[in-house]
């Protein structure tokens, strides 16, 4: 039985090559972020194992990040993403409850509005929305950065699908015992829906963490810049500080990576159910 074994090792080689191909740019960014600026391009022009593996490690680039504008931008990104997740989950879960736990005339129309709102790509309506936000003096405010993340139809949709599976008998029993509607929502639906809440929270977090077009339009002053914008601006400067550019890239990647790994199970679950079933 030599053939299956040959096949299996061929697959292993291909798999390793593919994995490495995707990992090399990130590995290179991490290594470069740990290097003095003068040494940055030396290891590129003479490629060796040192191009991808750190030697003479220094944390100077990260230290410089913390004291510079970029540290502030990262902090802004964290504040904006956290506020979006917390407020967005409250708003979306309440809406999903209104769409799933109670039946009323016109519900279909409202659900249709929710679906319609996430079929319209956000980046495409960023221009008219930015005009509105400027009229409302929301430019360069945290509210201006956070608000667009809150009207997230997909989060409502995901939570509604989950809420629909909660048996009505449970709600009836609680109502007969004298629990109010808010009690039903907060004490029955929310505790039962942890996986869906994590999935929706991840959707909100990643939407906000990866945002570029919107913060470019609305958060331009140094006090309200988000991480990706500060990173892009670094490239526009006369002399680019590559050490800081790479260190900033690593920080902006590690934070969502930790979140994704912590909630990986829910993340893959929500991925495999989005649009497939």
């Amino acid at each position: 039985m030599a053939r299956p074994r040959v096949r299996r090792s061929a697959a292993a080689v291909l798999g390793a090559l593919a994995g490495l191909a995707f990992a090399v740019p990130l590995l290179w960014a991490v290594t470069s972020s740990l290097r003095e600026n003068e040494a940055m391009f030396r290891y590129i022009s003479e490629p060796s194992w040192r191009t991808l593996l750190p030697s003479d490690v220094t944390l100077a680039n990260y230290a410089a990040l913390v004291t510079g504008d970029f540290g502030r931008a990262i902090l802004n990104s964290i504040v904006v993403a956290l506020a979006t997740v917390v407020l967005g989950l409250v708003i979306s879960a309440a809406a999903a409850f209104g769409l799933a736990a109670v039946r009323f005339r016109g519900q279909g129309v409202l659900f249709g509005l929710v679906v319609l709102s996430f079929l319209i790509p956000f980046d495409a309506i960023a221009i008219p929305l930015a005009t509105l936000f400027r009229d409302w003096s929301l430019q360069n405010t945290y509210a201006g950065l956070i608000l667009p993340g809150l009207g997230h139809g997909l989060a409502i949709f995901l939570l509604r699908q989950f809420f629909l599976a909660i048996p009505a008998e449970l709600v009836e029993a609680a109502r007969i015992d004298g629990l109010g509607w808010f009690g039903v929502f907060a004490r029955i639906y929310l505790p039962l829906s942890r996986p869906a809440l994590v999935g929706a929270g991840m959707t909100l977090f990643i939407f906000q963490w990866q945002a570029y077009v919107w913060p470019l339009l609305i958060g331009t002053d140094t006090a309200h810049q988000l991480g990706p914008i500060a990173l892009a601006n670094m490239r526009g400067q006369f002399t680019i500080d590559y050490g800081q550019l790479f260190a900033g890239s690593v920080v902006l990647t590690v934070i969502p990576l930790i979140v994704i790994m912590r909630y990986q199970r829910h993340f893959t679950q929500s991925i495999s159910t989005t649009g497939l079933k």
């Binding site: 995707f22 990173l231 990576l257």
Partner: peptide, 16 residues
Amino acid sequence: LVILPIAVPPAVSAAI
């Protein structure tokens, strides 16, 4: 490793 880039914001990928 192949999935890893999904954690990278587009602006960061572009910078690298």
